[in-house]
Amino acid sequence: MKKYWIVFQQSFQNEFVYRLNFILWRFRNVLRILMTYFLWHSVFSSNSNVFGYSKEQMMAYVFLVLLVTSFVMSAPSNDNVGGEISNGTLNNFLVKPISYLSYWLTRDWASKLLNMLFAVFEFSLLWFLFKPQIYFSQSPTQLLLGIFLTIISALIYFVITKLAISVAFWTPENTWGFMFIILVFMDVLAGSIFPLDLLPKSVMTFLQFTPFPYMIYYPIAILVGRVDLITALKILLQSMAMLGFWYYVVMKVWKKGLKNYAAVGI
């Protein structure tokens, strides 16, 4: 455990090496939220209730997207693991007494911590600039459930993206293609632009069986009180089952991938 703590500390420090890059990255995250904010702001300028959402609930949803996205989707592993498989530097890790996936999970969490610190600052700044009225769930239990689900969402995100990247074991010249399509689906179906309960019920029921709504939509829906406590608990159990299933799949695929791995890039 101690070695991962050292990896965590070093990765956190490492994030400060390219400060300008990091600040520009955070600036880009704020820009992305602006479109969603102003779209919904315009929608509510002539409507008081849209799809059962009050303006306060929707504004809370939009603002929480910034925080939840910063936490769940900050993952430097996405930019590195594929390359390390294809160019053969994965060898360095295979000979060390460290789990490669745990190593990158630790690095991701160091990045998440820094991104969250910035996201809280950005959240406060945007709130100060736009002064939206925000509504959160009044139940502390539900808020805790929402936070817990966000942590599980980050793990689901890690597992799914590593599964997509493991394609590199079989096609080292194409490490990004499959990942790109997963990110495209996540872009809309995770709920970062709109709450997914706008979708027809049948589509929403289907999406429950995919990992996408667990990444952003469900945690925020619980935090803003869109679902009751019993439903929130049900979602939490579903998300844990989802994590368990995809973890099993990624471990199987990773094992097969390692057998196929020939360090061709070396």
């Binding site: 779209l39 315009s42 929608v43 300028s45 002539s46 409507n47 849209v50 799809f51 790109f180 399509i181 495209v184 689906f185 872009d187 809309v188 179906l189 632009i193 709109f194 706008l198 979708l199």
Partner: peptide, 26 residues
């Protein structure tokens, strides 16, 4: 190619769905 089409298509779908709940935006 497919991914890009999906990306554009999903946002178009969202705009269409949005107008199931509102008559106009601004």
């Amino acid at each position: 190619f497919f991914s890009k089409l999906v990306r554009y298509g999903l946002f178009l779908l969202f705009l269409i769905l949005l107008f199931n709940g509102v008559t106009s935006v601004m």
